[in-house]
Computed example of a mutant assay.
Amino acid sequence: MLDETDVRILDELSLNSRISMKELGEKVHLTAPAASARVAKMEDKGIIEGYTIRLNQLKMGFSVHAMIHIYLRSANHQPYLSFVKENSEHILHNYKISGESCYLLECKFQNNEVLDDFLTKLSELVSYKLSIVIN
C-alpha cells in the first residue's frame, strides 16, 4: 500500500526521473537515504518498473503522428504482428484492444508519402481506419 509520501515521490519521479535523491528528499521532506530506500522498495515491489525518456518526434524529423485502428480479416494475427515487427521504425505503440477494432497502432512518419507507403503495405493484410493527431 502506498502512503502519501510514496505518491509524492512517484509524482516527482514522473516529472523528472533523473532527479537526485538529495533533491527528491528535499521535495518530499525526507533525507536522501530515506528517499532512496523508498524508491528502492517501490522498485522491488514492481511499482516502479523502469525509467525512460520522452522524445520529441517532431524535432527528430517525424512530422506525421497517426493513430490507426486495425481490423483483422481472419483469426490469424501472425501476419499482422510480423508486419508490425518488420516496420517497427514507424510504430510507437501497438495496443491490442477490445471494442470495434482489434488493435490500435500509434505511429510516426517523416511525411505523408512515407505514411501512404506504410498504409499501402498494411492494407494487403488488414482493414484500417486512420486518424492524424493534430495536437
Rank of each mutant, 00 (worst) to 15 (best):
M1K: 11
D3F: 04
E4M: 08
E4P: 05
V7R: 15
I9E: 03
L10F: 11
D11V: 08
E12F: 09
N16L: 02
S20H: 10
S20D: 05
S20A: 13
M21W: 09
E23Y: 06
L24Y: 11
E26G: 11
E26D: 12
K27I: 04
K27C: 01
H29I: 00
L30E: 01
T31S: 15
A37M: 13
A37E: 08
K41T: 01
M42W: 00
K45P: 00
E49I: 07
I53G: 14
R54Q: 11
N56W: 08
L58F: 13
F62D: 03
S63I: 02
M67Q: 05
I68Y: 07
L72C: 13
Q78S: 15
V84G: 05
V84A: 10
K85A: 15
E86P: 03
E86M: 09
S88P: 04
E89C: 00
H90W: 10
S98E: 08
S98T: 11
E100S: 15
Y103P: 03
L104S: 11
C107Q: 04
K108E: 02
Q110L: 01
N111A: 04
E113C: 04
D116G: 10
L119E: 01
L119K: 05
T120E: 15
K121N: 12
K121P: 01
Y128W: 06
Y128V: 00
K129Q: 12
L130V: 09
L130P: 11
S131W: 10
S131P: 02
V133D: 13
I134Y: 14
